[in-house]
């Protein structure tokens, strides 16, 4: 690679994508002088390309704003009639027209929080194993299978949860936990099979593939020389992964967890099938609960009065807000953790 064609080539690379690079390389090699002839074409392409990028980004931003406006307008009647009581009330009685969203907010946040704690542990471990420890012969099919799991429709998880996991929680997992830790309020009370714990487990199962697949990509992209440097200093494989590879991949892994959390917060059908659908705030994880997404799915089709429909749209708005708040909180947490890590 001589400096002068190299320069031209780089001009070609910045000018376009993919095949353009190949094209300009050929042009550069064959006829360096004629490069200027191509320039106007690239510029028009450039502009088109940048417009396309700008448009697709702003379209999404516009969509989010539109979504917010529509949800807000739709729920205005409910906000006007209930005000703050809507947020802090815990009674949900469509017959009497009392609507309080607190049990749904509680159910959404708690089930997703438990799910992400379990899924990040399992998912990152799986990613580290696949990227660093598993022999390639096993790692490749395994990674493929995990990515396949991410594509399984949530209703399938829901059915499996209802017919396999729920009975298992009722007859095996639940009693086992209760016999040891039954004195804790979160493991007390009757076990129905369906409930907050089962929903959290299903959600965890659903988001592990997301965490594992994305984390694996980031772990694999950690520079080889960093690993080699660590190994050269006499570190074991495990020490290398723990002290160099995982910290280097941390921003990506965190991003994976945030993405997974988003899926858990919005998950509807699988949660609905196994959470028990009781709008109550219970200390026990074995008790039934309810989430924002589930109650919308359950009651929207048959809701008839204006206030009732407006209230359900209001729950949609709340879910939107909860997702934004949780995502923001996760991001702030990530920045704090990363800064602390740098300071150390």
């Amino acid at each position: 690679m001589t400096p002068s064609p190299g320069d031209r080539r780089f001009r070609g690379i910045t000018a376009g994508v993919g095949e353009t690079v190949v094209g300009s390389e050929r042009a550069a090699v064959a006829a360096p002088q004629s490069l200027d002839v191509f320039r106007p074409r690239y510029r028009a392409g450039d502009r088109l390309f940048s417009w396309a990028l700008t448009l697709s980004t702003w379209t999404y931003l516009g969509l989010i704003v539109a979504l917010f406006v529509v949800l807000f307008a739709g729920s205005w009647l409910a906000i006007k009639s209930f005000g703050l009581r809507f947020l802090v009330g815990s009674s949900w009685d469509p017959v009497a027209g009392h609507f309080g969203a607190l049990p749904f907010i509680f159910g959404t946040v708690v089930s997703s929080a438990i799910a992400i704690v379990i899924a990040s542990g399992v998912g990152i471990a799986a990613a580290a194993y696949l990227a660093e420890f598993a022999p390639p012969l096993i790692a490749r099919p395994l990674a493929f299978l995990i990515e396949l799991l991410a594509a399984v429709p949530s209703v399938v998880y829901g059915l499996w949860g209802l017919f396999v996991l729920a009975p298992l929680v009722r007859s095996v997992i639940g009693p086992a936990i209760q016999s040891k830790l039954g004195w804790l309020p979160i493991f007390s009370g009757p076990i129905y099979g369906v409930g907050m714990l089962t929903a959290s487990l299903i959600l965890a199962l659903m988001i592990v593939p997301t965490v594992a697949a994305i984390s694996r990509d980031f772990i694999e992209s950690v520079a080889v020389d960093q690993r080699e440097a660590m190994l050269a200093l006499g570190a074991t494989r495990w020490e290398t992964v723990r002290r160099v590879v995982l910290p280097a991949a941390r921003p990506g892994i965190f991003g994976a967890c945030v993405l997974a959390l988003g899926r858990a917060l919005g998950e509807t059908i699988a949660t609905t099938m196994v959470i028990g659908n009781r709008p109550a705030i219970s200390a026990s994880l074995f008790a039934p609960g309810y989430t924002l997404a589930s109650v919308i799915a359950n009651e929207f089709t048959e809701a008839t009065t204006q206030v009732y429909i407006s209230t359900l749209i209001g729950l949609g708005l709340l879910l939107f807000v909860v997702s934004i708040v949780v995502n923001a909180a996760a991001r702030i947490l990530m920045h704090t953790v990363l800064r602390n890590a740098e300071e150390r």
Binding site: A96, G195, T272, M273, N277, R278, P288
Partner: peptide, 13 residues
């Protein structure tokens, strides 16, 4: 849709 009063109740879709 009503507020089901029983403490020992669960809802199925």
């Amino acid at each position: 849709s009503v507020q089901w009063p029983a403490q020992n109740s669960v809802g199925g879709k």
